[in-house]
Every structure is written in C-alpha cells, then in structure tokens.
Simulated assay, not measured.
Amino acid sequence: MRRRPLDHGGVPPWRRITPDPVRTWRRRFLERGPGGLCDDPRPGVPRKITDADVERVIVKTLEETPKKATHWSTRSMAAATGTVRRRRTRGLLGI
C-alpha cells in the first residue's frame, strides 16, 4: 500500500507558520513518536543557564514581589536569584 504524501495545509494562516517547520514536526513525529516533537540539541556553545534556573526565576516572578517595588526589574531579579542580569534576560527571552 502506497502512503499518500502528507498535506501540510490546514495550518491557519494567522499562525504565520510556513510549511517547512510543519514538515519537520510531522517527520519527527512519524520517526520518533511524541518525543520527537521536542527540540533537538542545537549546534554551538551549550546553554549556561539551566532549566532549573529558568524555573526558579519564573516562579519568583509570578509568586513574589520585590521589597519596596511593585514589579521585578532585571537588576533586582538578578540580585535576588544570583544570576547575571544580561544572561538571565537573554536566556529567558530565548536569544
């Protein structure tokens, strides 16, 4: 039985997703199942900020407020969590 090619349509245009990532996700899913939808390791220098660091900052942001302030700044969060301000900001933004 011949398999028909996958139709990559059906992605709503407002999602602004081109067919290329959809093909990649579908191929990974067929090859590896649901676990294939996770990102593959990226080339280059490994991340210096861990998932635990990101989780700690997010939890602190959502559940606490800084002393004498209404919201966290990058400086106050860096001081409270012991992370480097620039790395924390870039790491959380995914850049």
Rank of each mutant, 00 (worst) to 15 (best):
D51Y: 00
R32L: 09
L30K: 13
T65V: 13
R4Q: 15
R87D: 10
S76G: 04
D40V: 05
T81Y: 05
R88I: 01
T81W: 01
P66L: 09
R87C: 03
V22Y: 07
V54M: 07
C38G: 10
D20N: 06
I17C: 12
L6M: 06
R88D: 03
R88P: 07
R85P: 04
R47V: 09
L6G: 14
E31G: 01
L62Q: 15
G33M: 09
E64W: 08
P21R: 10
E31S: 09
V11F: 14
S73W: 07
C38K: 03
R42V: 15
L37V: 12
R4V: 13
R47K: 09
L6R: 11
A78F: 02
P66Y: 08
P12Q: 14
K60L: 09
L6F: 08
L37A: 10
G9I: 05
D40E: 14
G82M: 09
L37C: 11
T89S: 06
H8K: 01
W72Y: 01
P5W: 03
R32F: 10
H71R: 14
P41C: 05
G35A: 14
V59D: 08
G10R: 11
T50L: 04
R87S: 03
G91H: 04
T24N: 08
D51G: 06
P5R: 05
E63F: 12
T61G: 11
I17L: 15
R32Q: 11
L93A: 08
R23G: 03
A79F: 00
W14Q: 12
L37S: 11
T89G: 04
R23F: 04
E31V: 01
M1G: 14
F29E: 13
I49W: 02
R3Q: 13
G91C: 08
C38I: 06
R15E: 12
W14I: 09
A78H: 01
T65P: 02
C38L: 13
A52M: 07
E64N: 14
V59W: 11
H71V: 08
T24V: 05
V84Y: 01
G9S: 03
T81H: 06
P19G: 00
W25F: 12
G44C: 11
E55H: 12
R90A: 10
H71K: 15
I49L: 08
R15K: 09
R86I: 07
R56D: 12
L92S: 00
R3K: 15
P66R: 13
G91M: 06
P34W: 15
I95H: 15
T18K: 05
P66H: 06
R87A: 02
A80F: 01
V59Y: 09
T81M: 06
S73Y: 07
G10I: 11
G91V: 09
H8R: 03
I58L: 13
E31W: 00
T50M: 04
K60I: 02
I95G: 04
G35V: 14
G33T: 04
L93Q: 02
T18L: 11
S76Q: 05
E63N: 14
P19K: 00
R4E: 14
C38V: 11
R85I: 05
D39H: 10
R75H: 01
